[in-house]
């Protein structure tokens, strides 16, 4: 055990010059120490295995790194995010517009509805989730990030399913359009309806 410690100190460079010289001298003279030194050295050498690897991995690694190094991060690309937000806002407006006409078949003043919703589309881009949009029939693979779902699609769908717009007056749309966000707008519509 004492030999082991001295061998390991020697291998670690912890012996000073004098101790090192003594150890090397003893290594020549003492066969037991030499045997133990060789055993430990071999054990340590046996750890040094570098197996044959699949070279395809390294070729692919280069490709992966290249695409990541030169590619722009989706989450950090403000222009892309804003563009995406605008696209989904427009899609949402179109879907709601179509939905209203499919479901109600009423002579609602479409300009008014559209303008009301357009006023809220910026809020949508910030606060509406893609799941909600998908539930409304807009298919997409991406999503808006933040704070979704104070506004629920149930609110919208239930409202739209059960509402006829005959009674919704021009003044109502005027009131609604003053709402700060889409959620409030829906609440106002619901309150007025029910």
């Amino acid at each position: 055990m004492k030999n082991n410690d001295t061998i390991l100190k020697y291998l670690s460079g912890l012996l000073d010059e004098r101790e090192k010289a003594n150890f090397e001298k003893e290594l020549v003279e003492n066969s037991d120490l030499k045997k133990e030194f060789e055993r430990i050295s071999k054990e340590l050498d046996d750890l040094k295995i570098t197996p044959e690897v699949d070279n395809v991995y390294f070729a692919n690694l280069e490709q992966k790194v290249k695409s990541k190094s030169t590619g722009k991060s989706k989450t950090h690309n403000l222009g892309f995010s804003l563009g995406l937000g605008a696209v989904f806002s427009i899609l949402f407006i179109i879907a709601v517009y179509n939905f209203i006409f499919d479901k109600s078949g009423n002579n609602v003043n479409s300009d008014k509805i559209t303008s009301t919703i357009v006023l809220s589309s910026d809020d949508l881009a910030d606060s509406y989730s893609i799941d909600d949009l998908e539930n409304l029939g807009i298919s997409t693979d991406d999503y808006f990030s933040a704070g979704l779902s104070e506004l629920s699609d149930k609110d919208i769908i239930s409202f739209l399913d059960n509402t006829t717009f005959d009674d919704i007056s021009e003044s109502l749309f005027s009131d609604i359009s003053k709402s700060d966000n889409f959620s409030e707008m829906i609440d106002e519509l619901k309150n007025l309806k029910y």
Partner: peptide, 16 residues
């Protein structure tokens, strides 16, 4: 570093 290496060796060799 030398001390860390020594302790690492001790554990590896002891392990063996």
């Amino acid at each position: 570093l030398k001390a860390n290496y020594f302790h690492a060796l001790k554990k590896i060799v002891k392990e063996n």
